[in-house]
């Protein structure tokens, strides 16, 4: 069953038709999925403190109801390691349309995948999996299955990709931890089944996978009108 808090998040986002990244990630966390450590702030000082604690740098993003696709609006900055750089980018992001505050989060590096869901007219909730990032539409190397997923189906989705070697690891590069990825996808598919009547589509893109984590670095949930 969904927690009360999850229901609240969905209800309050209904008027805008979609759930902003911080709320979408909060939903994922309530479902037991892994998200990066973050703070939501407009203060340079708080952001600077957070940067100091983050070993591999931070990502800064504008949180705005007016920006659905952040990349197109240059509303994401990755790989920030210095306080000056962070401050400069925060100033710029704050000027973007409708920017409420800045999401500063721990930077995670690994293999980027997309895990998505769509409420299909004929089949109901379906799960999409593929190599992630901003070029996902160009390669369209994705697999589609009907939710809820069984663990064996996650494996068959990975197997069916052209880029399956990227997932399994090649030329000395570590692959994805399949157990964690499988748990994430099965769990996510159950979440989508529960919200069948509320959601239109979900993009977890990218989900960053390493040998020991699968972290949801960005999440967007489109609600049914």
């Amino acid at each position: 069953m969904l927690e009360k808090n999850s229901k609240k998040i969905i209800e309050k986002s209904k008027s805008s038709g979609w759930i902003l990244e911080p709320d979408a990630k909060a939903l994922m966390k309530l479902q037991g999925l892994d998200i990066p450590d973050f703070i939501l702030t407009n203060s340079f000082e708080a952001a600077g403190q957070f940067l100091k604690k983050s070993e591999s740098g931070v990502v800064a993003k504008a949180v705005s109801k007016k920006i659905i696709h952040k990349t197109e609006h240059k509303a994401v900055v990755t790989g920030i390691v210095s306080a000056d750089h962070l401050k400069k980018e925060m100033v710029r992001l704050q000027k973007l349309a409708g920017c409420e505050n800045i999401l500063v989060e721990q930077m995670v590096q690994g293999i980027e995948v997309i895990i998505g869901a769509k409420n299909d007219f004929q089949f109901g909730p379906v799960i999409v999996f593929g190599i992630g990032g901003t070029s996902v539409e160009i390669y369209n190397d994705t697999a589609v299955r009907m939710a809820p997923l069984k663990p064996a189906e996650v494996l068959s989705m990975v197997e069916s990709l052209k880029a399956k070697k990227i997932i399994s690891g090649y030329r000395g590069m570590a692959g994805v931890n399949m157990e964690i990825l499988t748990n994430l996808m099965v769990n996510f598919s159950l979440f989508v089944m529960e919200l069948e009547n509320d959601i239109e589509s979900v993009d977890l893109n990218p989900v960053i996978c390493t040998r020991d984590r699968c972290v949801i670095a960005d999440a967007r949930i489109m609600l049914k009108c």
Binding site: K118, D120, F121, Q122, F123, V126, V144, R145, M146, S156
Partner: peptide, 16 residues
């Protein structure tokens, strides 16, 4: 008849 998204159809048939 409303034809749905073919990709979804085809992949789900294979899955099952």
């Amino acid at each position: 008849s409303l034809a749905g998204d073919y990709r979804v159809f085809s992949e789900i048939m294979k899955q099952h």
